[in-house]
């Protein structure tokens, strides 16, 4: 018994190291594999508070640029309203504005990463402002990411520039859909996978979100085809997509809530359960 106690005392530094290193590795693995159940994230009272303090200072630096972006968006929306009034009928193919099942919440990015392999943004709105986990986040130009954890006043968003990120996307012209992932090589360039080889692909094609997932409304712009290739022995294209949103300067964003998501997911789960 005494021997054991002596052993612990003699090696207490190593044991402490091993314990804490083990915990760290555990947290790391957790963040690599189960991206929704993270214990340590920036959507909390302390880091959220410090980041919003930081953003009260740094917000002034790019006011001009952000104003231009918002003016540009106003212009687009104004043109859109004009068209609607002229047609006097709601164009249901452009689901972003017409479909009533989506609610938009404005928020501001108070912390932004884009240089790591797993990037997250922190927003200044949280569950008190009706933000929930799994809501899509878009900017005026295109998609930004998906909310992955919320606290009372802050939300942490998994950026599309994250190796865990998987967004269903499709070609605007042909409706062929695939999964959008990021290979970490260039910020602002993501990869569209699983596009079958019979799909027509051309440089500059617009990629938009697909309504099949309950996270984003259909037709939110994502980016355009930058380059693509198809190996003769593979059935799928590998396509590089340049994002419309400049992820390095995104500031004003909208969280999108699909009010029918729960209903759709419940139905889908029922079907899956029935098949098993």
């Amino acid at each position: 018994m005494q021997q054991i106690i002596f052993f612990f005392i003699r090696n207490k530094n190593f044991l402490l190291f091993a314990l804490l290193f083990g915990i760290s590795i555990g947290l790391t693995l957790n963040s690599h594999y189960y991206h929704k159940t993270k214990f340590v994230n920036s959507a909390n009272f302390l880091s959220g508070g410090i980041f919003s303090f930081k953003s009260t200072v740094t917000d002034y630096f790019d006011l001009r640029q952000q104003n231009e972006i918002l003016t540009e968006e106003n212009k687009k929306l104004r043109a859109f309203i004009q068209n609607l009034e002229q047609e006097e009928s709601i164009d249901t193919t452009d689901g972003m504005f017409a479909d009533r099942s989506f609610k938009f919440y404005a928020a501001k990015v108070i912390n932004n990463n884009y240089a790591k392999t797993k990037n997250y943004l922190t927003l200044n709105k949280g569950s008190n402002d009706s933000l929930k986990v799994d809501m899509g986040v878009i900017s005026s130009e295109g998609i930004v990411g998906i909310v992955h954890s919320v606290s009372g006043n802050y939300a942490s968003v998994q950026s599309v520039l994250n190796t865990n990120s998987q967004v269903v996307a499709k070609f605007k012209k042909s409706d062929h859909f695939g999964t959008l992932v990021w290979n970490t090589e260039i910020p602002n360039v993501v990869q569209l996978t699983e596009i079958p080889r019979l799909a027509p692909v051309a440089l500059g094609d617009t990629i938009v979100t697909d309504g099949k997932s309950t996270i984003f409304p259909e037709g939110i712009p994502i980016g355009k085809v930058r380059d693509f290739e198809r190996n003769p022995d593979e059935d799928y294209y590998s396509i590089n997509v340049e994002l419309f949103t400049d992820m390095t300067s995104v500031k004003h964003v909208y969280a999108v809530e699909n009010t029918r998501a729960e209903e759709i997911l419940t139905l889908e789960n029922q079907v899956e359960d029935a098949e098993q």
């Binding site: 530094n13 190593f14 190291f17 804490l20 290193f21 915990i23 760290s24 590795i25 555990g26 947290l27 790391t28 693995l29 957790n30 963040s31 690599h32 993270k38 340590v40 994230n41 920036s42 909390n44 302390l46 880091s47 410090i50 980041f51 912390n111 990463n113 790591k116 797993k118 997250y120 922190t122 942490s156």
Partner: peptide
């Protein structure tokens, strides 16, 4: 916590402290 990076910094720090 600030960088949303799981436990990578904690692991690196504990290692060099050891």
């Amino acid at each position: 916590m600030f960088g949303d990076s799981g436990g990578v910094h904690a692991a690196a720090c504990v290692f060099i402290a050891w």
